[in-house]
Design a protein around this nucleic acid. Structure first.
Lengths: 136, 136
DNA sequence: CTACTTTCGCAACTCAGTTGCATTAATGAT
DNA sequence: ATCATTAATGCAACTGAGTTGCGAAAGTAG
């Protein structure tokens, strides 16, 4: 018998704790992506790093946020417009600034060609260069 | 005054040691990408892991191989056709199989759109799915 | 062969991410 | 409101990729 939080479709999150709310609020506040490392620093007075990792896992399971690797191989998370549904299907590209490291979700569509004898399911696309602030 | 190895344009590699030859031969033998982890295992009887990291660094400086992050954030290297020159300009996509983890350099061109107020310099594109062997 | 300098091996380290377990707290049931 | 259940948390210890410093080994020019 399932209990609570019926709005979380995949039941990654089953109890809405203070920590979960804190993390969710951060993602609501800005749609910019955040590295796990920066998130841990951001909430270090409120919760343990293990908790951060586990909450991010669960939020991703529920399709509320999505993850990808930044240019240094570190893990980043973001809540983009496409993240509202559990039908989260993600080929949208990300942009990371090579000067300030900021990461943005891009709304442009990049078409993935078919590759002979390969079954393509997803794509991670990371564009790199200078962001608006660092361009000028 | 520069010495030796005049064919290495950026002088990452200055001395052709046994270890360098070993690593280069691996990349010559197959154009499939290799993770650093697998390379270290492959040559563990011949050299130290620190040496592997340093040789890969130098070979990349010289444009003989190129690097990128795999789906788990681990570093991979490959020698593709485009790697022959020091004018190595790399937007070619990679493919990683979600079943067997194998990575291939793809020769298809994926066009990167311009992003408003952003200066795009490079792109890491990783397609994922099933490779030829794992499709059937 | 010698001198110079790159490269290597080793050991110790950093840091992201994980795991196990005991404790805490959110939730449904009473 | 209280109780029982079990998800979620904190902590400490761990794993594993990648890095660093330094003394020793080995290429290369002369």
């Amino acid at each position: 018998m399932q209990q609570g939080c019926v709005n979380f479709v995949f039941m990654g999150i089953k109890r809405k704790t203070k920590s979960v709310t804190t993390v969710l609020n951060i993602f609501e506040a800005s749609h910019d992506a955040k590295s796990v490392v920066s998130l841990i620093t951001l909430v270090k007075n409120e919760m343990n790093k293990t908790t951060v990792y586990r909450i991010l896992d669960r939020l991703e399971q529920d399709g509320l946020i999505h993850s990808f690797n930044g240019k240094d191989g570190l893990k980043w998370y973001a809540k983009c417009n496409g993240c509202t549904s559990h039908k989260h299907f993600d080929t949208h590209p990300h942009f990371q600034c090579t000067k300030c490291d900021k990461v943005e979700c891009l709304t442009v569509d990049i078409s993935i060609p078919n590759i002979k004898n390969h079954n393509i399911e997803t794509a991670d696309i990371l564009l790199m260069g200078q962001c608006e602030a660092c361009c000028s």
